[in-house]
């Protein structure tokens, strides 16, 4: 009886905590949506108006008519899909090489590559642009896609490496005895057991490419090739920003991510089932 009551109490507490935190975490989204339904003169009134009055739907009309949503979406996906695939495939391979194979100099190489995360873009921007411009790839998507196929960045490699290293080595040894090579071990053993981690890097790189503003800003000039994130800046003038329109377009832009995230995190549950095989 006591145990049951304790459980009920604990569940109630968990729900209470979750709901309170949810409210706090929902505020920015609510704020964005409410701003997208207000005209520029009321967005900044004080104290803030929490409920738009009047509701300015025209921001959405405007954003949808002046913002070539589908063209930008197409452009964004043209970059995002190959970059995402490249990141997942190459980060998985590289992380396996750093986590599951013990070779001389491994940690040194890993440390060297990790240093790429430590230099701010401010100073690498110009040399990197210089290189792409000499290669003739400015105003194409190449600089935004191709690097993803070469490891997909140390963040992702490091993350997968950490997860791969928690899987007991015994499995590999057994598989090796059965004549499996490294590719087979990776594909049949490591990948299924690391699904939550791989989904995590997929979510991160999706978000990165979806929201990437600076990359397209630096490399893309042709208005026809603009992406969703870059397109948002089209509303900004030198002296003014059209806030209502900007907020409406931003809202439209993050809706797909919310849906995608909602769907993607469900596969974490599948991860549990597989994780249960362990030990």
């Amino acid at each position: 009886m006591t145990i049951q009551r304790q459980t009920i109490f604990r569940t109630a507490l968990a729900y209470f905590g979750l709901i309170m935190l949810s409210i706090i975490f929902l505020i920015p989204l609510y704020w964005l949506v409410r701003s997208s339904l207000m005209d520029d003169s009321t967005i900044f009134t004080f104290p803030p108006q929490w409920i738009p009055n009047p509701v300015a739907w025209e921001n959405y009309d405007f954003a949808l008519s002046r913002y070539p949503l589908f063209q930008y979406l197409g452009n964004t996906l043209t970059i995002l899909i190959p970059a995402l695939v490249g990141t997942i495939v190459s980060a998985t391979l590289v992380a396996y090489g750093f986590a599951r194979i013990s070779w001389p100099g491994r940690d040194l190489v890993f440390g060297l590559l990790l240093s790429t995360l430590m230099l701010p873009y401010v100073v690498t921007l110009i040399p990197t642009f210089f290189m792409w411009s000499r290669l003739g790839f400015v105003d194409t998507y190449v600089p935004l896609i191709v690097p993803s196929w070469f490891g997909g960045g140390m963040f992702n490699i490091f993350l997968l490496r950490q997860f791969f290293r928690t899987i007991p080595q015994d499995y590999d040894e057994a598989a090796t005895l059965d004549g499996a090579n490294h590719f087979q071990i990776l594909w049949h053993l490591i990948v299924p057991m690391s699904r939550p981690a791989i989904i995590t890097i997929a979510i991160f790189s999706f978000l990165h490419h979806w929201n990437d503003f600076l990359g397209p800003l630096i490399y893309i000039s042709d208005p026809e090739k603009q992406t969703l994130a870059l397109g948002l800046s089209n509303f900004q003038g030198y002296y003014s920003a059209e806030w209502g329109h900007l907020m409406a377009a931003s809202t439209l832009m993050i809706l797909p991510i919310i849906v995608l995230f909602f769907v993607a995190q469900k596969y974490f549950i599948k991860g549990i089932a597989l994780g249960g095989l362990k030990g």
């Binding site: 190459s90 391979l93 750093f98 194979i101 070779w103 196929w149 490294h182």
Partner: peptide, 9 residues
């Protein structure tokens, strides 16, 4: 093998 797997990076 290690170099092969990490070569992309």
């Amino acid at each position: 093998w290690g170099l092969l797997f990490t070569s992309p990076a």
